[in-house]
Design a protein around this nucleic acid. Structure first.
Lengths: 215, 215
DNA sequence: TGATGGGTATGAGAAATCTCATATATCATG
DNA sequence: CATGATATATGAGATTTCTCATACCCATCA
């Protein structure tokens, strides 16, 4: 064990190594399937995941993206919720699975962990609030550019159009218009297995738009 | 002391009564002014507050609204942030101020409190994410109607138009168009001290729009 | 095999929203 | 009082986004 440092060390007041197992996921892999009862706590050490939920009408809705480092499944672990949302890897992920059965009590009484979690949740809330406040001001062109960069790290955009349009808060029709625009401009290229990014610089400049500052 | 129950009882593992003071605010009162160093923890027992922050360019930006019951200033109390945002009462508020100087250590090691806070923060995040995801699909007419109901509980809408437009993510121009529309329809009436709500039923039906369900 | 449903795709016109331009009122400040 | 900064207010035309209508492809299922 030539580990320089155990990555969970800072997040707990006791040694969770005996209860932890590292799991790796490739982009696209399902980490948690929706509606499962889940008694484990997850710590995303590396990567990015997508959280989604199925609505009453059967449509799948993308709820949010979460970047490492972050805890997953913490609400269920704390007993504040029964069923998990669906969680899918967007980037290759390194994820620690901490089994609840053997150290649940201990974790729930670990002030180091609880304080860390409070801080991370609070920051997540603030960041999300600010980000969604800002993003809502941009036209779809900019938001879609950012979305593509976020979800297609390997250079090929594969999201389901219906779900993507819903997440971005626009109609399917309009989403397709803008996507077709990107293809016309030579930014994307349609292939049999997705849209290949041909000009990621162009996408970045569209998604940036630092100059756009309303009012 | 004929208190049926001390309202903070459920949120702490020890008796915080000695460290707590109840403060009441009227709608419009400032609870925390922005940029202050703050070492107290607040618990909003009743009411609704507005959180705002001044941007580098000097504009004031409304960040979010928070309903009771909720903790305020928890990130500063946990040491995760230095300066507070501005917090203003929207409804009459009952707020407990818990002085940090005398029981900070104890609170930071109180697992009952920490667990409660984690759960509340997690829920706040999920609710906010879902709400902002949903709301972005509605036209301004609906969002403004809801915003007016939320910020004008006494029947008079007094928000600054520039800030409201920024919060709602639309241009000032368009915001005024829609507001003028509400006046034309007889839903609002312009008075010297704000816009008086004449048809709150109309506002509610505009803000509801349960039938609106894209895709 | 035919039917059904979901994802995909495209067109045309309508509605929502933005940009730019201009004007007045208010308020603090020298 | 004059001045500048900010909020308020309104108009006209451009752009974004929506609604509705219509196809096609491909899976599943009876």
């Amino acid at each position: 064990m030539a580990d320089a440092r155990f990555p969970l060390e800072d997040y707990f007041g006791f040694d969770v190594r005996p209860y932890s197992a590292l799991v790796r996921f490739e982009a696209g892999d399902m980490i948690l399937s929706e509606g499962e009862a889940n008694d484990a706590l997850f710590f995303l050490e590396q990567g990015r995941v997508k959280v989604s939920v199925t609505q009453p009408n059967g449509k799948v809705l993308i709820v949010s993206f979460i970047d490492a480092p972050a805890f997953l499944g913490e609400l269920e672990f704390l007993g504040a919720r029964e069923l998990t949302n669906g969680v899918t890897a967007v980037l290759p992920c390194a994820c620690w699975r901490i089994a609840g059965t053997r150290c649940r009590e201990r974790i729930l009484n670990d002030t180091t962990f609880l304080r860390k979690l409070c801080v991370m949740q609070g920051r997540r809330f603030v960041q999300n609030a600010e980000k969604s406040a800002r993003s809502q001001s941009y036209p779809l062109k900019a938001r879609l550019a950012q979305f593509i960069l976020q979800t297609a790290p390997d250079g090929v955009y594969r999201e389901k159009h219906t779900e993507a349009a819903a997440y971005l808060g626009v109609t399917y029709r309009h989403y397709l218009y803008v996507l077709a625009d990107f293809v016309d401009c030579g930014i994307l290229e349609k292939t049999f297995q997705g849209y290949r990014i041909r000009d990621s610089e162009g996408l970045r400049s569209l998604s940036g738009m630092e100059t756009l500052c309303r009012l």
